[in-house]
């Protein structure tokens, strides 16, 4: 009986954490970085950044596997962090690929 109460408390704690996280997720931090939102403007600089990101994406990710589809930016941030560890890609490549994939 004591055990059940403990499990129920744990699930409540988890639900509370998720709720807090969900509210935090709707805040301003969840929005893409200003540099990324600006890319929809279509200026030459933004286009250059997009091309650079695409080039690095194909050179780094395409070395081992087929190009994945685009995911939500927060998922891309996790995937790119994982690939920085797994494939030892450089910090600049990670940054450019993250911007490109999150567009």
């Amino acid at each position: 009986m004591k055990m059940n109460r403990f499990v129920v408390a744990a699930f409540f704690a988890f639900a509370l954490l998720l709720a807090v996280s969900a509210f935090a997720g709707t805040g301003s931090k969840d929005s893409p970085a200003p540099a990324v939102t600006a890319t929809s403007g279509g200026s030459t600089q933004d286009e250059d950044m997009r091309l650079e990101g695409e080039k690095r994406f194909r050179a780094n990710c395409g070395r081992c596997h087929m190009a994945p589809p685009k995911f939500a930016p927060r998922m891309v941030a996790t995937i790119v962090r994982h690939m920085r560890v797994r494939a030892n890609i450089t910090d600049e490549d990670r940054r450019q690929i993250l911007r490109y994939m999150a567009q």
Partner: peptide, 21 residues
Amino acid sequence: LFVMCGLALHAQDDGFKPVPI
């Protein structure tokens, strides 16, 4: 695990908050 999952939801990476996957 649950606590870590909650903390992980607050990670930050170049303006994006990475989400556990």
